[in-house]
Design a protein around this nucleic acid. Sequence first.
DNA 1: CTGAAAGCGCTTACAG
DNA 2: CTGAAAGCGCTTACAG
Lengths: 352, 352
Amino acid sequence: MPITLKQLAQKAEVHPSTISRVANNDPSLRIAPDTRERIEALLRETEYRPNGVARGLKLRQTFVLAVVIPDVTNPFFAALFRGVEDGALSRGYNVLLCNTDGSPDRQRSHLQSLHARRVDGIILASSVLKDPSVRWLRHQRIPHVLVNRFSDEGQDTFVGADDLLGARVATRHLVELGHRRIGHLAGKLTVSTGLMRRRGCLEELEARGLPIDPALVVESGYTEAGGAKAAERILSLPDRPTAIFAVTDMTAIGACTMARRLGLRVPEDLAIVGYNDIPLASRLVPGLTTVRVPIHEFGAAAARLLIDQIVVGDASRRRVIFNPELVVRGSTVAGADDGPLRAQHAAAFATE
Amino acid sequence: MPITLKQLAQKAEVHPSTISRVANNDPSLRIAPDTRERIEALLRETEYRPNGVARGLKLRQTFVLAVVIPDVTNPFFAALFRGVEDGALSRGYNVLLCNTDGSPDRQRSHLQSLHARRVDGIILASSVLKDPSVRWLRHQRIPHVLVNRFSDEGQDTFVGADDLLGARVATRHLVELGHRRIGHLAGKLTVSTGLMRRRGCLEELEARGLPIDPALVVESGYTEAGGAKAAERILSLPDRPTAIFAVTDMTAIGACTMARRLGLRVPEDLAIVGYNDIPLASRLVPGLTTVRVPIHEFGAAAARLLIDQIVVGDASRRRVIFNPELVVRGSTVAGADDGPLRAQHAAAFATE
DNA sequence: CTGAAAGCGCTTACAG
DNA sequence: CTGAAAGCGCTTACAG
C-alpha cells in the first residue's frame, strides 16, 4: 500500500494539511523554511504521490479522457488515438480507449460506463447522424468532441475535414482522367462521412454534366469486406463502371481485392480512389490514390478543444475543419507510383 | 451533476445506505417489498449509477487496467490492445492506453502516473531485459503482466510465444530453401525478442552445420526505418546474403523496401522472413513469409491472467507460451502467393 | 502563519 | 430487519 498523507504527517510531526500544501506547492502557505525542507525531503524519500482517486473525488476532476472509436486495428483510428494522447499527455491527462465495432449498443454502454467513472471528457469518432448517444452526452452536459463524423450539424464541438470538398476533388480527378461511368461505394447514409462524400460525389458529377446512374451508388459500410461486397455488385453490372470512388481507404482496398479477383487490372480496367490516406495506402501495389486528411492532427486538435472545454467550463461549440488534399498514385494513373510522389513517400518513411 | 445517494435518499425518504444496498443488490438486505419496489423505480427513473470515483476510493478498486506499449499505430500493438479490451470488458474493466515510443523515460513516467491513479493492474508490452520499471512494478506490488517481451526470466506473469522456436523454424525454412548465407536483423539485444530470436537463428544455423558470419547479424531496432538501414548495411557487403530473417514484420518490410531500392528482386535475389504475421504481411506484394503468433490471444490471455491476479490477490507468477507457426508467402517462395495459402487469406478477409 | 474540520460520494460493519 | 456512523485519502475555506 502506498503511503498516505496521514502517515506522512505522523512521521513529520505536522498536520496532514500542511503536507498536502507543501506537496501541492500552495503559494499561500507560510511555513518555517526548515520545516518545509524536512517535509520536502520526506516527500522525495518516500516518493509520495497523492492518491488520484481521493483527489478526483475531492476536486471533482479525474484527469482522464476517453476516446471512443469503432476499432483501433483500423489504422485510421490508431493514428487518431495517437493524436489524442499526444495532445492530452502534456496537460496531465491519461486516455481510456473504447472500441465499439460500430455497434450503437456497445457505444451506449461504453458511454454510460465512462460517465459513471467520471471521466472529464469524451472524444467520439464513432457517431452516426442524429445519434441518440450524442444527444445523451449533451443532455448530461458531459464535455465531448466529435471527430471525423458529426451527429447533428453544428450542435457539438467538432473536428474533421471538409468531406463535401474532398469527395468533389476525388470525383473531379476521375472525371478529368476521362471516366464517364463512375461508381461510388457510399459507406452508410446514416453516417455523416457517407452522406457528405456521397453528396460531394454526385454534385461533382452533375456539375460536370455527367449522368448519374443510381445503380452505381451503393452502400458499402466501412470495412474491407463491405467494400469488396459492394464492389462486386457494381462490377457485375452489364455496363460496369470504369472507376470507383470509395468512402474510405479500407473500403477501397476491399474493392481492389475484388477487382483483382474478377480479373480486372487496376488502374487500366478500373481506377480506384479511396479516402483518408492511411499509411497502408502508399504501400499497396499499385499505390492507392486517395484524399489525404491530417489524421494525427484530428486527434491532437480534438484533445486540445476538449481540455479547453473542461478547464474553462466553456460549453460553446467550436468547429475545426481541415482541408482535404488529393494524393495521386498508381490506382488511378498507371506509373504514378514511380514518379516523384512515390519518391517523396519513400523519403517520408526513412525519417519516420 | 449526476444524482447522488443522498439526494435519492431524500426523495425516497429512506437512509442513503438503504439505497446503496438496493442498488448493489445486497443479499443480506431485508426490506419491505413495496419500499424496495419504490426504490427500484426511483433508481430506474433517475438512471442512477454510483459515482465510480467514490466507489473506487471506498473499495480500493478502480476497475481500470492499463496497457503500456511502444506505439499503437504499429498493427501488432493495435491487435494486442483489442485482445486486452475484449478480455477485460466482460469483467467490468475499462482500459487506459499508454504509448512509450520505446523511451524508458516515457515508460517510467507513465507507470508512475498509472500508479498514482490506482489502476488495478498493468499490462506491459514495452519492457526491456532487466527493466528497472518492471522491477519497480514488482517492488510496489502492482499487479502486472508482461506480454511478448519478458524482463527477468520467470519473475513476472508472462504471455508470449516461444521466440527461440519461432526463430529456429524461420531459419530452418531458409536453410531448406538452399540458402547458405543468411542475414539476421536482430532488433535490440536489450529486448528479449531480439535476444531470443537471434539465439534461435544462430542455433539453427549451427545445427545445420552452416558457418556463422558475424557481419551478417546486425541490430536493427524494431521500426521500418531501422530495418531498412540495417538491411542496407548487410546488403552492401561484398559477399551479401541471399536471405534475411528479420526480428519483426515491420523490420522485414523496411528490408524489402531497401532491397527493391538496391535493385534486388524478392525472393529471387533476396528471400525475406519476418515475424508476427501482422495483417499487413499478407497484403504486401509479394506476401511476406513470417512466423505467426496469436496476437489477439496474447492480449486476451494477459487480461485474464491480470484480472485473476487482482481478484484472487494471487501473486504467483504464471506463464502462457503459445506455439509460433511458419506462414510461407511470396517473399521466400516465388509463386507462393497464388497458391492455396493466399486463397485462405482472402477467405479470412471476406468473413472479417 | 498553521491546525482542525468539513466534505467529496460511496460501502459496510455495527447498533438498536 | 433498518438506520446511523465511520472511514476510504485527499483539499481548502475557515478559525485561532
